[in-house]
Amino acid sequence: MERILKEVLDTNRKYVNYGQVASYIPELKNAHRDDLGICIIDKDNNVYKVGDCETKFTIQSISKTIVLAMALMDNDWIDVFSKVGMEPSGDPFNSIMKLETNDTKKPCNPMINAGAIVTTSLIKGATPQEKEERMLKFFRRLAKNDNIGINYDVYESEKVSGDRNRAMAYLLKNDGFIDGDVEEVLDLYFKQCSLEIDAVDLARIGMNLASYGIDVENGERLISERVSRMVKTFMVTCGMYDASGEFAIKVGIPAKSGVGGGIMASVPNSMGIGVYGPSLDKKGNSVAGVKILEDLSKKLNLNIF
């Protein structure tokens, strides 16, 4: 497996030159465009990795999958989807347009920023600190890594540059989709996006989703089967921003990307994949990361369709 991973990485390394690191969050400009790594963890708990798999980066939008799982476990799913939709938006992840133009005014899905801010607001906790602690504990448990924490430089950068997210949140509050203090919700949202992980962490979380919420190492249930199915479905339909349809056709694996350069993929009952490559295309996806997953899907026959 590692020979295949090295071959795929070497073949697609050239694509790092086709994109740029994210710059709209100033701190993300510090990433090295040439970094590239792949990790696979399979259902037998074997770990295969090549390249820059232990390079730390912030999880960004990949966090939306896990926070959605938390929101669905903390609340009745009917209540969650009364506040956020289930359909692809067809718009960029940070678009604000449909909050004003669609009939219901609710966000189209939990994988765009507006929808993710809503699901973050649904995490249970008596205080902001309790919500943050629960979120951190859940991420660490899924990744089996107690060292996962918040990159406070990125968090502060997100907070300072987050006016578009702030505008969304206040619109959502005005229209009744967010309860409680908007700034507290935004603060937790910026923190979840600023969690620092690596490709191995992503592969582990991806495997836990691939196994329908059961830890393949010890058999512990971490997420309910129903919730894990819902999360993977959103990954297929909305996980790669407004390139999700093309990705589903070319790769055919549930996946979620983030502008920190990560992609987390879950092949049901088979494996979790973590890819890191911070050189992004115009839609916010890792250029080389997408190409790597295309090749892996073909070589290992991973397409679920």
Results as ranks from 00 to 15, higher is better:
8 V>P: 06
10 D>K: 14
11 T>W: 01
11 T>V: 09
11 T>F: 11
13 R>W: 11
13 R>I: 09
13 R>F: 10
14 K>F: 07
20 Q>T: 15
23 S>Q: 10
26 P>T: 08
30 N>M: 09
31 A>I: 00
33 R>K: 15
33 R>G: 10
34 D>G: 13
34 D>T: 15
37 G>S: 02
38 I>Y: 03
39 C>Q: 05
43 K>L: 02
45 N>I: 02
45 N>R: 14
48 Y>S: 10
51 G>S: 09
54 E>F: 02
60 Q>L: 07
65 T>E: 01
67 V>R: 00
68 L>A: 03
70 M>G: 01
73 M>H: 15
78 I>W: 00
82 S>M: 10
83 K>A: 03
84 V>Y: 11
85 G>L: 05
85 G>Q: 04
88 P>Y: 12
91 D>V: 00
93 F>V: 08
94 N>V: 03
94 N>F: 06
96 I>A: 07
97 M>C: 01
111 M>W: 07
115 G>R: 04
116 A>R: 01
117 I>M: 06
118 V>H: 12
119 T>R: 04
120 T>M: 07
121 S>F: 08
122 L>Y: 09
126 A>W: 09
128 P>D: 12
129 Q>F: 08
130 E>W: 00
132 E>C: 07
134 R>F: 04
135 M>T: 15
136 L>Q: 12
138 F>T: 09
139 F>E: 00
144 K>H: 14
144 K>V: 00
146 D>I: 05
147 N>W: 00
152 Y>H: 14
153 D>H: 13
158 E>G: 09
162 G>T: 10
169 A>W: 01
172 L>F: 08
176 G>L: 02
181 D>I: 07
183 E>T: 07
193 C>G: 08
196 E>C: 08
197 I>R: 04
199 A>V: 03
201 D>M: 02
205 I>Y: 00
207 M>R: 13
207 M>S: 13
208 N>E: 12
214 I>K: 15
216 V>H: 06
220 E>H: 10
221 R>Q: 14
221 R>F: 06
227 V>F: 06
227 V>P: 05
229 R>M: 12
230 M>S: 11
233 T>W: 14
235 M>L: 11
237 T>D: 04
240 M>F: 09
240 M>E: 08
244 S>V: 01
245 G>N: 12
248 A>M: 13
249 I>D: 12
249 I>Q: 12
250 K>T: 14
250 K>R: 15
255 A>N: 01
256 K>M: 11
260 G>F: 02
263 I>P: 13
268 P>W: 06
268 P>L: 02
270 S>C: 13
270 S>G: 11
273 I>E: 03
274 G>C: 08
276 Y>F: 14
277 G>P: 03
279 S>H: 11
281 D>S: 10
286 S>F: 05
287 V>R: 10
288 A>H: 05
291 K>G: 03
293 L>C: 06
294 E>R: 05
294 E>Q: 15
299 K>H: 11
303 N>W: 02
303 N>M: 12
305 F>N: 08
